[in-house]
């Protein structure tokens, strides 16, 4: 049996129905454990004080903001190449979740920046890149909302997502070039000296898992909604005709 069969709308509804509560449950458990661990049980950093606890929200949401866009890019490509409707709908479903993650990353970053850098907003490359990503999400969602015909909308937004990805990447490098940053280097690589210490690292991993699971659960839920909306539309069209 081919993997693609899971993308058939009817099959998709079939297997996601039972999976959904488990996904939400697992996401809830991971987030509860990770955030509780991070908020109550980790020590303060010697330089950052208690603001280090914001990392448990900032890093996972920033990761998911980018991964959500990547997922939309892959889904758009699958739609353009293989014409699986579920794929286009999943891309549409992921955008609002992605923009929420971007917003969380931006706001927690701003709140953290105030005591640490002395300002809510600095035109730091990473902050600026996220603001640009936020604009791209807005444009993508606006284009979906503006077109009536669902297949045309799926096609056009897919092309926009691909072209947008190229330009988002370009913006990332342009912004890096334009202003050197305040951000520290990688905090999550496996072999670096400047890695965050284990005390902070394990709850962070749990939080990241929680955000990933929550994203998956939300995208499944929203995709199911989109499939139902599509089916409803087809039924209504048929009723009008007869």
């Amino acid at each position: 049996m081919s993997l693609w069969e899971y993308a058939n709308p009817k099959k998709f509804m079939g297997w996601t129905g039972p999976v959904l509560p488990w996904a939400f449950g697992a996401a809830g458990v991971c987030l509860a454990v990770g955030l509780f661990w991070g908020f109550f049980l980790t020590p303060d950093d010697y330089r950052q004080g208690s603001t280090v606890k914001i990392i448990y929200l900032h890093v996972p949401s920033a990761l998911m903001a980018i991964n959500a866009w990547m997922m939309m890019l892959v889904a758009s490509l699958i739609w353009l190449v293989r014409r699986h409707h579920v794929s286009a709908l999943a891309a549409k479903a992921a955008a609002p979740v992605g923009i929420t993650m971007t917003l969380i990353a931006l706001m927690t970053g701003a709140i953290w920046g105030q005591p640490m850098w002395g300002t809510y907003w600095a035109w730091d490359p990473r902050l600026t890149s996220f603001l640009i990503l936020f604009l791209f999400y807005l444009g993508y969602m606006a284009l979906w909302a503006a077109i009536d015909d669902p297949d045309t909308a799926a096609d056009l937004t897919s092309v926009l997502c691909i072209v947008g990805s190229v330009f988002a990447l370009l913006s990332r490098y342009a912004v890096n070039f334009w202003n050197q940053g305040l951000h520290q280097g990688a905090s999550l690589s496996l072999d670096k000296e400047e890695n965050v210490s284990d005390v902070f690292f394990f709850p962070l991993l749990v939080c990241i898992a929680g955000f990933v699971l929550l994203f998956v659960a939300l995208v499944l839920l929203r995709t199911r909604t989109e499939i139902r909306a599509r089916r409803l539309r087809a039924l209504q069209l048929r009723e009008v005709r007869t």
């Binding site: 603001t51 914001i54 917003l103 709140i111």
Partner: peptide, 21 residues
Amino acid sequence: PDLGKYGFEVVSAYAVSIVLL
């Protein structure tokens, strides 16, 4: 827990994120 002088920042970051989620 004792959040030191940054208590407001930490709590508001958590509050904002949880509200958005």
